[in-house]
Amino acid sequence: MRPSTVRALLRALLLVPIILAGALLAGCNPPYNWRDYTSDDGRFKALFPAKPAALARTVDVGGLQVEMTMTAAKVDGTTFAVGTAVAPDPARAQAALPAMRLALLRNIGAPDAATPGDSRVDATGAVHGAPMHLSGRFEAKGSRFYQVIVLGPAGKTPPEQVEQFLTSFSSF
């Protein structure tokens, strides 16, 4: 083999690891950039897959008018959110849970096949003709109640990402 051919071959061999490293680094920008989040009032914490934003507005939850704060982050068209509100008393907070569940299911046109007391939801429906999947859990602590949901295009969000978000939630 000629010396110039050997040098060219060695240069090519040296470039292969550099190209592979570049390809690996390009793949290291994951869409899920998990971060700990504690609510401004310190009442809950969760892992969000991106930087969340919070918005508060008055909503009707089963006939109860409450100010609900939604803290949410969106990744690849899927919303990861925690909604929280305060009821006048613990009994009304508990009663708000099935009402929130039903409202969310209606938003995607999915039937409510839950058994009484079920604190989770896993349903597929549609929004504007596009198949959507909703996963979530609901809980009340004292007069405060929460919805922890993942809503996005059906079949798009990896189940392990959904489960990580739902199980990371804790209230105080």
Results as ranks from 00 to 15, higher is better:
residue 171 S to V: 00
residue 102 L to E: 15
residue 12 A to N: 05
residue 66 V to P: 02
residue 141 K to G: 05
residue 53 A to R: 15
residue 151 L to N: 04
residue 143 S to A: 12
residue 34 W to H: 13
residue 90 P to S: 00
residue 103 A to V: 08
residue 80 F to C: 08
residue 143 S to Y: 06
residue 144 R to I: 08
residue 119 S to N: 11
residue 76 D to Y: 04
residue 24 L to Q: 09
residue 98 P to E: 11
residue 117 G to T: 06
residue 151 L to E: 07
residue 10 L to A: 11
residue 75 V to E: 02
residue 23 A to T: 10
residue 134 L to K: 02
residue 152 G to V: 10
residue 157 T to D: 08
residue 137 R to S: 07
residue 143 S to I: 03
residue 164 Q to D: 09
residue 60 D to K: 08
residue 102 L to V: 13
residue 153 P to A: 14
residue 118 D to L: 05
residue 37 Y to T: 10
residue 99 A to E: 13
residue 106 R to C: 04
residue 167 T to F: 03
residue 64 L to C: 06
residue 134 L to D: 06
residue 113 A to L: 15
residue 11 R to G: 14
residue 93 A to I: 00
residue 164 Q to W: 01
residue 42 G to M: 03
residue 19 I to V: 15
residue 122 D to I: 06
residue 40 D to F: 11
residue 46 A to R: 00
residue 45 K to I: 04
residue 75 V to P: 01
residue 31 P to N: 05
residue 125 G to I: 01
residue 143 S to L: 02
residue 1 M to E: 13
residue 132 M to V: 09
residue 172 F to A: 13
residue 166 L to Q: 02
residue 54 A to D: 02
residue 136 G to W: 00
residue 85 A to K: 09
residue 123 A to V: 07
residue 121 V to N: 00
residue 83 G to E: 13
residue 42 G to W: 04
residue 78 T to S: 13
residue 95 A to C: 03
residue 116 P to E: 12
residue 156 K to Y: 11
residue 83 G to F: 06
residue 10 L to M: 07
residue 130 A to Q: 13
residue 86 V to F: 02
residue 91 A to E: 14
residue 113 A to N: 14
residue 126 A to F: 14
residue 55 L to T: 14
residue 6 V to T: 14
residue 1 M to C: 13
residue 99 A to L: 04
residue 17 P to H: 02
residue 91 A to T: 15
residue 25 L to Y: 08
residue 29 N to W: 10
residue 131 P to D: 06
residue 80 F to R: 02
residue 126 A to V: 14
residue 140 A to T: 05
residue 147 Q to E: 11
residue 69 T to F: 00
residue 63 G to S: 04
residue 110 A to G: 11
residue 117 G to P: 01
residue 113 A to E: 15
residue 161 Q to N: 09
residue 49 P to F: 04
residue 8 A to Y: 07
residue 169 F to A: 07
residue 124 T to G: 12
residue 163 E to V: 05
residue 116 P to Y: 04
residue 144 R to P: 01
residue 38 T to V: 09
residue 29 N to T: 13
residue 132 M to W: 05
residue 150 V to Q: 03
residue 31 P to K: 01
residue 102 L to A: 15
residue 74 K to L: 10
residue 70 M to K: 12
residue 74 K to I: 15
residue 51 K to E: 15
residue 87 A to K: 01
residue 86 V to E: 12
residue 144 R to W: 07
residue 66 V to Y: 01
residue 20 L to T: 11
residue 42 G to K: 03
residue 95 A to E: 12
residue 118 D to C: 06
residue 50 A to N: 12
residue 58 T to S: 10
residue 118 D to N: 09
residue 45 K to G: 14
residue 80 F to E: 04
residue 12 A to E: 01
residue 116 P to F: 00
residue 123 A to W: 01
residue 166 L to M: 08
residue 99 A to I: 06
residue 47 L to V: 09
residue 30 P to R: 14
residue 76 D to I: 05
residue 96 A to V: 03
residue 50 A to K: 07
residue 41 D to Q: 10
residue 9 L to Y: 05
residue 148 V to L: 00
residue 81 A to Y: 00
